[in-house]
Amino acid sequence: MLAKRIIPCLDVMAGRVVKGVSFVELRDAGDPVEIAHGYDTQGADELIFLDITASSDNRGILFRMIEKVAEQVFIPLTVGGGVRQVADVRDLLNAGADKVSINTSAVLNPQLVADAAGRYGSQCIVVAIDAKQTSTGHWEVFTHGGRNATGLDVVAWAMRMEELGAGEILLTSMDRDGSKIGFDLQLTRAVVDAVEIPLIASGGAGNLQHLVDGIKQGGADAVLAASIFHFGEYTLTQAKQYMAKQGIEVRL
């Protein structure tokens, strides 16, 4: 049976892994290559790198970093941050990414998702959605690292992205990001029920039960976590053993 995936997420800034709370208050978490190699051997199912500065002067640093990571890591790598055109997708894939995540640019130019999926295939196009709750059962899409409101409804937006060729949705609850109180399960379930493509739940994982809840209650295909792994609270193996005990199919 297909395993549910655990995906450590590495936010990178100027070549270092950092971690924030609600998208601010960044702490240094270490060297990307070392961290990625560690997760690869400990049983992570995939890795996601998000370039959270994403300014043009950092692109060179990012490409060199991905190349180094790709030399040592033999699981799928997703890279996102600052992807603005199809050529950016190409460059990231050439540097060693297996999938590219598109967030702000998908809102500014939805055709980019269609063009990138048309050229490189849906399997390598992840659309990242940063969601903030506006009222019970309603969430709005935010861009630019959570700074700009768009007026777009998250569920409708996810469906539109699927239609344009996204192969996967990375759904982050801004309200929960870094809070360690668990994923927004209502949000996760609302999007899972609306699309046929796989969904990665993100934002709020603080313990192993949260990972289980994201899959069992939220219906996610994969769960993303950063702090609980970066700062050594849990290992990937502990997380997987816990999930397996709760009846979730995992790769051990």
């Binding site: 549910k4 046929e196 994969a222 790769r251």
Partner: peptide, 10 residues
Amino acid sequence: KLKIPHMGWN
């Protein structure tokens, strides 16, 4: 629901 693409470790 069975997702398409079939994505992950099987």
